[in-house]
Amino acid sequence: MLVDFASLKPHSRVWIYHSKRKFTPDEKEIIYESLSSFTNDWSAHGVPLVSSFDIKLDSFIILAVDEEAHGASGCSIDGSTRAMKALEERLGLPLFDRAQASFVRGNELFTFPVSKLREAASTGEWNSETLCVNTLVATKGELESGFVIPAGATWLKRYLPAAPITG
């Protein structure tokens, strides 16, 4: 059962899907059409899920379920994966690429392949204070408070140059 994203409670579970570039207005229309239909009919064991979706930073699709009302089951999660794969195919954009890290500078989003993070940090392209998108948030509450945070407060800190030891 599709509800307004803002009405979902902070404990609602979220899944994040990422595009390496911003969605066009036509792509956003396709996303809204596809996910409105999917979330309106999404259920677990025949029970409608209180669910919604949102687009953040014009590049991230957030799918959410209020599991207090009824939990998402393995089969219903598989259904959401199929829906997102179908959307990915329709858009011709990879949405499941977890080998990218996204950063925010002003109104711009930029990404680096994980394999290039150490090099990009050593050349000053990002540092511990550079805002990054934390795709590891698990709930709507975490999304609201920790979706865009300094890279040094995330798993990305392991790619930063070691601080010199003074003494």
Rank of each mutant, 00 (worst) to 15 (best):
H18W: 04
K20E: 13
K20Q: 12
K22C: 11
K22P: 07
P25T: 12
P25Y: 02
P25Q: 13
P25N: 13
P25A: 11
D26F: 08
D26N: 13
E27R: 01
E27W: 00
K28Q: 11
K28M: 08
E29R: 15
I30A: 07
I31W: 00
Y32N: 15
Y32K: 15
E33N: 15
E33V: 11
E33F: 13
S34E: 15
L35C: 05
S36L: 04
S36C: 08
S36W: 05
S37G: 12
S37R: 15
F38D: 02
N40G: 12
N40I: 00
N40E: 13
D41A: 15
W42T: 02
W42E: 01
S43L: 07
A44Y: 11
A44H: 06
A44Q: 03
A44C: 04
H45P: 08
H45M: 06
G46M: 05
L49I: 11
V50Q: 12
S51Q: 00
F53P: 04
F53I: 03
D54I: 02
D54E: 10
K56Q: 09
L57Y: 04
L57P: 05
D58Q: 02
S59N: 06
F60A: 09
F60M: 08
I61G: 00
I62L: 05
I62H: 01
I62S: 00
I62V: 09
L63A: 11
A64P: 02
V65T: 08
V65R: 03
V65Q: 06
D66R: 05
D66K: 00
E67S: 04
E67A: 07
E67L: 03
E68L: 14
H70E: 10
G74N: 03
C75K: 13
C75I: 15
I77M: 10
D78G: 05
D78R: 02
D78Q: 01
D78F: 07
G79M: 10
S80Y: 07
S80I: 10
S80E: 00
T81E: 11
T81L: 12
R82M: 11
R82K: 13
A83Q: 04
A83V: 03
A83E: 08
M84P: 06
M84V: 15
M84A: 05
K85V: 15
K85A: 14
K85N: 12
A86L: 12
A86Q: 13
E89T: 14
E89F: 11
R90C: 03
L91Q: 06
G92F: 07
G92R: 08
P94R: 12
P94M: 09
P94D: 13
F96S: 10
A99R: 13
S102E: 08
F103A: 04
V104E: 07
R105W: 10
R105P: 00
G106N: 07
N107T: 12
N107Q: 14
N107S: 13
E108L: 04
E108C: 03
L109M: 14
L109V: 14
L109G: 00
L109K: 09
T111W: 09
T111P: 02
F112C: 01
F112D: 02
P113H: 13
P113S: 12
V114E: 05
V114F: 01
K116E: 15
K116C: 08
L117N: 06
L117P: 09
L117E: 05
L117V: 04
L117M: 09
R118C: 02
E119A: 10
A120N: 08
A120G: 09
A121Q: 00
S122A: 12
S122N: 15
T123D: 10
T123N: 12
W126Q: 08
W126S: 06
S128I: 04
S128P: 00
E129K: 14
